[in-house]
Design a protein around this nucleic acid. Sequence first.
RNA 1: GCUGAGGUGGUGGAAUUGGCAGACACGCAGGACUCAAAAUCCUGUGGCCGCAAGGUCAUGCGGGUUCGACUCCCGCCCUCAGCACCA
Length: 807
Amino acid sequence: MKEKEYPHEKIETYWAKKWVEDKIYSAQDDSPKPKNYILDMFPYPSGEGLHVGHVEGYFASDIQARYQRMNGFEVLHPMGWDAFGLPTENFAIKTGQDPHQVTKDSVAVFKSQCQRAGLSFDWEREINTADKEYYKWSQWLFLQLYKKGLAYKSKSPVNWCTGCLTVLANEQVINGHCERCDSLVELKNIEQWFLKITDYIERLVKDLKKLDWPERTKKGQINWIGESKGFEINFSVKDKEITLPVFTTRPETIPGVTFLAIAPEHPLLETLIAPEQEIAIKNYLETVKSRPLTERKIGEKNKDGVPTGSWVINPFTKKEVPVLVADYVLMDYATGVVMGVPAHDRRDFQFAKENNLPIVHVFLPSYAEKIEDKPYPEDEGKMIIEPYKGMELSPARKKIEEKLSSFGSPRTYYKLQDWLVSRERYWGAPIPIIYCEKCREVPVPEKDLPVLLPDDIKDFRPKGIPPLAQSEKFVNTVCPRCGGSGKRETKTLDTFVDSAWYFFRFTDPKNEKVFADKEKLRYWMPVDFYVGGAEHTVGHLLYSRFITKALFDMKFVSFDEPFLKLRHQGMILGEDNRKMSKRWNNVIRPDEVAEKFGADTLRMYEMFMGPLEQSKPWNTRSLVGVRRLVKRIWRLKDGVKKDDSFSKEQMDLDIKDIENLVWNVTRYLEKGKYNLCVSEFMKYMNNVEGRGMITENLWEKFVLVLAPFAPFLAEELWKILKKDYSIHQQKWPKADSQKIKSAVQTIAVQINGKLRGTIEVDSDREYSSDEILEIIQSDKKIAPKLEGLKVKKVIYVSGKIANLVTE
RNA sequence: GCUGAGGUGGUGGAAUUGGCAGACACGCAGGACUCAAAAUCCUGUGGCCGCAAGGUCAUGCGGGUUCGACUCCCGCCCUCAGCACCA
């Protein structure tokens, strides 16, 4: 007997093509329906193509999009390409190709992979950040920020990747190394463009409350922003007319200040150096310079320093304390000077020990009986110095702050710095600025946008000088203000600028007049459901929120948060439990799985693996279970019969099963528990298959709920039912909860909390505890177990459990 | 060190949020069909004792609350992820 195989390849490729041709997933801007904007983080189209991990999130959002369409929403579910950026440029250099061509090739692969996977994207809205029609508006955005004073140029120490030979944003530096090429990152003083995200810090923290985001993502952003409340105190320098501002979160420890430490990069350092210290300091600064950033920024290592020869007055004790240069003090946080309280800070303690500085204890934590030679960093305890001896820390803090009010005031600092957006590389949007000898820095007028990337660059190799500087045609231009000769800015924009506003463009991707029409923005935005990786917590997600708020303040958009609900897909590991990578040769590609087992199987398997947010290993053996489900469904279609071939009892059973399926799948879809949806289909098949046949009416319902999960199979079955094309434009069935109920329900019976059996009761009526006890006592199986026991109490939870407590 | 997530059979994972722990699936074992294999179907499948009925132990460890705890509280241990000399 030959088994009738499910011809997935034929069916799936046929429908994939037809759906695209018929544009059945196109979103209508003027729809009377309520909208639903379901978005995936758009991918970086690399040469390697998508692997099964990337598409996991796409499947979840696709199922949601298909469900919401059937649910009566006008759904916007677009896809595009975050095409600018270093990997493409590096690949182009390596292979001697043009990055335009590299991108084009990669996009073609990505797009066909998406279509093969049955993803219901609206391809009429496809965007590509490297298209001039797109980056024109990235440049426009930059100009708006510039006009508002939110984009500025500044010379300050920046992260310089020694491999890519370009600057990096703080978010792109991982443990002192480049997140892309892993090369060492060093500090360099170069003029760079920044966006003033720091103006928005408070709102970025506060508005997180409005969002339905995973807790860890919100916490991640809060941590990254790093708010810290404290007190800023000015120390006056002895014999000099200057003061050094110092930030502290522990003003009550000021009596214990025995030194000040200043960052090597501090602008005031030079004026503090006493003649006899000049050589020592010069040597120290040389040592520091040769130290890689990794060594300086990671862990708590060496705490060396050199006295500057200057002294400051402790405003509390009026005693003189020395000022030392020390590279454990960071210039890019707070004032770049710390007050050293070795008795109550681990780092200050280590520093004091290494440099023979005195240690003065200010308080003792409650557990300590006597002063030991170690730091007490605790935030509780009693003061041990006059005049506050015996006082708890927080009242003492208040008193000291009052006493020091002429030297300082409360102050809040943040770790988050302004966003560095210029890059010395080719494959990005040119920054639309022109330099003129007379007029200095002039923004390109909006009517002259886009500033096109020059195509006459022969050598993209990083040299530290922007490749755009090679193109005379590009560089030399006319000053828009005075008409004299001007030179263009040759740096390009960080790709995170492109991706910080792309979700707006999808609402109106072809508009040549504005970045997106106001009405369309009003209809579609904000994004209702956003799916993507958790690695974007402090990058893309934070930047997008900032840009949205800036555009809101400029009245371009009418909402100030872009993504209302956010979910992350977990990582899919290789079969060897390692991260999928070329290196381990464990990468699984969705198109290959689709070819072998079918895209429907792939989709449902990825959902069935476990909760979306969890990371989990791929297992092809497990996948065959889902493949079996698909085959079983395909086979059941031969058992579809007209309603009159069924008895009343069969009908009732069938109805109960299908209503139960619809009810549960709907419930799980609303909760995002896609794994449980798939197991509901399996349970349903287990029930129905035994009967071998199903009525046409109920089969129709079944195929409808299957549609978001297995869109190809469902479409084919729909066609076999001779129903109107397409199933993906039909209405979602409604479950009748009345039909799910059984006439009897099973109650678990416990004696003293231990399960001893079950009884069956009528589900239409309520039972009293006494009635239940009676039923239990007359139950042949349970009654003997009650012999010799005296029931003291009966706990009956309606419809669930009865617990008999005995003496 | 801080923050977040987690720890349930041989494996992936369920448990309507305090109410029959292990749904569903993989794997495994046995059987049916077959010359045979694949595919498919049926049965069994947490440990221990027992021929069985049944009993008993069991959700990282130790306590607690409760008629009842994977779920809540207290104290530990471990794993993963992010941040980290942030004053």
